[in-house]
Design a protein around this nucleic acid. Sequence first.
DNA 1: CTGTTAGCGCTTTCAA
DNA 2: TTGAAAGCGCTAACAG
Lengths: 341, 341
Amino acid sequence: MGKTTLQDVAREAGVSLATVDRVLNGRAGVHARTVEKVQAAVDRLNYQPDRMASRLARGRDYRFEIILPIGSNEFMRVLETEFRATAERYVHERVLLNITLVDVFDGEALANALEALPAEIDGVAVVALDHPAVAEAINTIADRGIAVVTLVSDLPGTRRAHFVGIDNSAAGRTAASLLGRFLGHRSGKVGLIAGSLALRDHIERQYGFEQVVAREYPDLEVLPVREGRDEDDRVRRVAEALLAEHEDLVGIYNVGAGTPGVVTALEKTGHTRDIVFVAHELTAINRRNLIRGSIDAIINQDPGHMARSAARILLAMREGMEIVPGQERIKIDIFIRDNVP
Amino acid sequence: MGKTTLQDVAREAGVSLATVDRVLNGRAGVHARTVEKVQAAVDRLNYQPDRMASRLARGRDYRFEIILPIGSNEFMRVLETEFRATAERYVHERVLLNITLVDVFDGEALANALEALPAEIDGVAVVALDHPAVAEAINTIADRGIAVVTLVSDLPGTRRAHFVGIDNSAAGRTAASLLGRFLGHRSGKVGLIAGSLALRDHIERQYGFEQVVAREYPDLEVLPVREGRDEDDRVRRVAEALLAEHEDLVGIYNVGAGTPGVVTALEKTGHTRDIVFVAHELTAINRRNLIRGSIDAIINQDPGHMARSAARILLAMREGMEIVPGQERIKIDIFIRDNVP
DNA sequence: CTGTTAGCGCTTTCAA
DNA sequence: TTGAAAGCGCTAACAG
């Protein structure tokens, strides 16, 4: 029961309301002995603060910064839209979400954006590139007392408090399973296209994929990964090269964005039926291609879920809720032709 | 901005706080002309109530009833656990979730349980059987002013306010796609086992399944559905019969619960490798069998998500938020051997 | 039918 | 270093 209130604690500790508030919120200027007395009372009564009341009384807004990749990557655009929707919902609860777009493929730029953040902000969610400058920037602002949450692509080893995203190794393993089973033990080569080898989520997917192919589908040969920068056109050229160079290509796994590029390549060369193509992220464009049959399966991370989770975690950390640092795993959805929403 | 408060509206309308509160919460005893004045002021100022403040001030608890099937159906037990967890989280927000277990396969019993609900409760979530008595009971309590939400299995045509669950036709279609593609165009018979033909979710899955097989996999013959009552033992016997009667059986789709029964049948007859088996609900037991290879794919509805959604909707309806009556679609998750969590 | 008033549990000046 | 008191936006008696 949330029955015990601040009042009860104050009485029990023999101090005033304000003092209890001070120790509970770690505000300075309280005698060590008093702190202890209050702590003891809190424990004894098993006091649980009422967040509704506290938010009401505070009046001030929370400010969070969301840093997303700029560019044509459709998934990121959807994610942005979801964050805007989340922001709207939260506006009535006194929390402000500000969205900033930066070039994530440029480590220095990302690091600068991070360090340029005003000191008053309460937290930041960022799609992180695996670059030394970025890691350093994250540590810097984390030390400044800002809660940092990595989004989509993690940066373990830094002092980020949380990661919100899918289990990318599992996603890669799933891609391999799907591709392998859809192929029905045909043998041949499989091409992999990633956005960048400095994007940890892509690398993890690749590892997961290769691991399952090695174990379960030894008749398949995984070609060396190529980079497509998550841009349709660049990805298309990579796919075309793959198709031209390997006549025994039986499958393609697009690890990152730019799926329409692969579709174009497949269509132009007339390979939509005989090459199994597994992609990521269900966007409007991918959805259409899935239904038309140019994509065999899509492995998805739900952008709405991610945006809401990130906002919730950022807020929870600021409100002093007990958040176990670590990660919030967003579930993987799989779409095949007949279950697209 | 949620800047405008009740005060502002009161001033603008030239009435008191209490009167605004009355019209906003639809309480009786307000002159029609006053109501209009207030409404006008609300519209003019685009007033948005502050739910935190209102919950704080109200003090009273909301009471919701959750009615779930009793029995060994593991998915339902997990759903129950999730509801208990949700209840715990909500206790600090002044909402009480009470869980009642009934035999859902017994329409009369379910209807009685529904009608026996105390009049003071604010809402109920129920896994509905497609039975006339149940439909009537739902209408009765809905007319009594209680918000009714159907869970997992819907009952359209009644005055239930909302349905929380997956798109079961899509689930059935997905099962067919997976089974068909995993079979790689082998031909033969496919057996379907449902819990009961009076469970609408099972029927919808069956339809979706048959539709895709007819359209995409004409070499597959879908056998008439059989009922397994969602009980492991009964399901096992049905599966054994299927196996014994059709030597050209190539696939099984278990539409409802009782999946361990199918696994046992498959193992005893040595058919774990050559028969493709698609099941529903990722529970601890199913998970193990998936990894061991006795199940080829699992289509899941996330019980945690369902419990949280149901609670949220029930609450939102009571707090007068604008909830579009209809359905809250829970996403379908697909699990295959390499992505089980 | 309508207004006044006292809180809900917490934060935040402002004094002491 | 601590306490008293005034709200935050809303609800709910209780008067009028």
